[in-house]
Design a protein around this nucleic acid. Sequence first.
DNA 1: TTAAGTGCAAATTATTTGCAGTAAG
DNA 2: CTTACTGCAAATAATTTGCACTTAA
Lengths: 145, 145
Amino acid sequence: MDTSFADITDRSMEMGANWLSRAQVRPTRQRLSLASLLVGDGCDRHVTAEGLFMAAKEKGESVSLATVYNTLRAFCDAGLMTEITVDGQKSYFDTCTDDHPHFFWEDSQELSDAPSAELEIARLPKAPEGAEISRVDVIIRVRRS
Amino acid sequence: MDTSFADITDRSMEMGANWLSRAQVRPTRQRLSLASLLVGDGCDRHVTAEGLFMAAKEKGESVSLATVYNTLRAFCDAGLMTEITVDGQKSYFDTCTDDHPHFFWEDSQELSDAPSAELEIARLPKAPEGAEISRVDVIIRVRRS
DNA sequence: TTAAGTGCAAATTATTTGCAGTAAG
DNA sequence: CTTACTGCAAATAATTTGCACTTAA
């Protein structure tokens, strides 16, 4: 599981605060908690709303589930995160906003980064006339063998 | 809109019936209706449950929404269709079961085929050890320009 | 002080399920 | 006949929203 989140420390709170201020997102208490869980140790994360909510609860942070949803949405709007849709059930939110491929583990329903450097798209269908490509999502579905 | 479905004719019903029997799916009245709307003219289609349900209603076929859901699921289980997840909101079902790329129209939320021949993936990240790749989904998000 | 953020609980949306009735093999 | 399919309505699951309250700027 991507159950591991950054610990809440002065350092992680500071990193969270920087992250928020870079995008001019108002640093409320709950946003600081969530931000520090997400980026407090500099690692990229792929989380679901529910997962982040539970992590916050475990670390003793008080945030409501609705706020977690609203906050993740706000982080995406601010360009701090990207939403990734994979299985139609839940949304995943990625702290890394670069366009990069993902592994989706069908057994555990987890999402993780695939090395961008190892993906090479030699040719891509051109957008139909009157349209432009806004993003290309590549999801590599894997299963335990 | 992918609102156009095949008309219900003897010919389309027959094609639908063949399609079902190829996969050994029991040809009930509602399955035949839906099958002939979907593949009755030999075209590939990308539908949502709701969309197919409305199309059936418009053509005077009587099917319940729950049955449309169950039927699409049954068609997927039988290998006749594939489910494609794109936006987390609704599921799309594709009558073409080959692994091929899609265009997703962000404005209208429609899904269409992208020419497979124009996609060339020169290198793909290898599956992490202990895992094997089951499928690679490529969604090219486009928007009206 | 004031617009923006938060927490509930209630509302929505997409989809599934239970169960009694209906039809295919 | 017998098992699978269908329809409806009720159940779920993920997410959003309305509204009174709190807080950052």
